[in-house]
């Protein structure tokens, strides 16, 4: 471990703001990139289910 304490780790030798800003934004964007296709697939499945129901009603 490079740091002596947790506060030391957060502080990053005075560069904490820069380091955490960079890591925070990157993590957020990676998560968004993963969540978007997951949500898209759910939406496609929902549309298909709706379509099937409609077809069954008209029959």
């Amino acid at each position: 471990m490079h740091f002596d304490s947790f506060a030391d780790f957060i502080n990053m030798g005075g560069h904490g703001l820069y380091v955490w800003l960079a890591y925070g934004l990157t993590a957020t964007l990676l998560v968004i990139n993963f969540v978007l296709p997951v949500m898209h697939k759910r939406q496609l499945q929902k549309e298909q289910a709706r379509k099937l129901r409609r077809e069954q009603q008209t029959q």
């Binding site: 990053m12 030798g13 005075g14 560069h15 904490g16 820069y18 380091v19 890591y23």
Partner: peptide
Amino acid sequence: GNSFRIIYI
């Protein structure tokens, strides 16, 4: 110093 750690992303 520690700002160098940004290199990892």
